[in-house]
Amino acid sequence: MTNAPDEPKPAAGTPTGPVLFYTETLLEHFRNPRNVGELAEADTDGFGLVGDPSCGDQMKLWIAVRDGRIAKIAFQSFGCPGAIATSSMLTELAEGKPIEEARRITDDDVIEALGGIPENKKHCSLLGVQALQVALGDWEGRQAAKAARS
């Protein structure tokens, strides 16, 4: 495999250690994760809670849908740097997207957007995508329930 063009080279004097195993983009999302928090009950159109039993990671994700698009998205994550950064990147990719497009986001899309992720961390990147799928399913369920009531 060749180096991805956006894979930043560590500058001289960069501290060694786990930092070098992660791309600058991933580290940036770890330091400043986007869309952290939760949506108010009244704002929430869909909610997803997923966990990775192999490592104990857990993620909660809230979405608000307006005019068929993800208008607001928020997450909370208990997990490793990979889990936090991939969740953050996922919310960035999904925000503002039409539902159908959001549904098609894969973990490879998230990994690519982060400029790659260490091999042993790939399973962490699944959580965000899974949580979004669950939240979208929840939204659909709520839509169906609403339709049945009216």
């Binding site: 786990p18 930092v19 992660y22 770890f30 104990g56 208990f78 997990g79 490793c80 740097p81």
Partner: peptide
Amino acid sequence: GIDGESIVL
């Protein structure tokens, strides 16, 4: 409530 690897990073 938090992960050790994240603390280490």
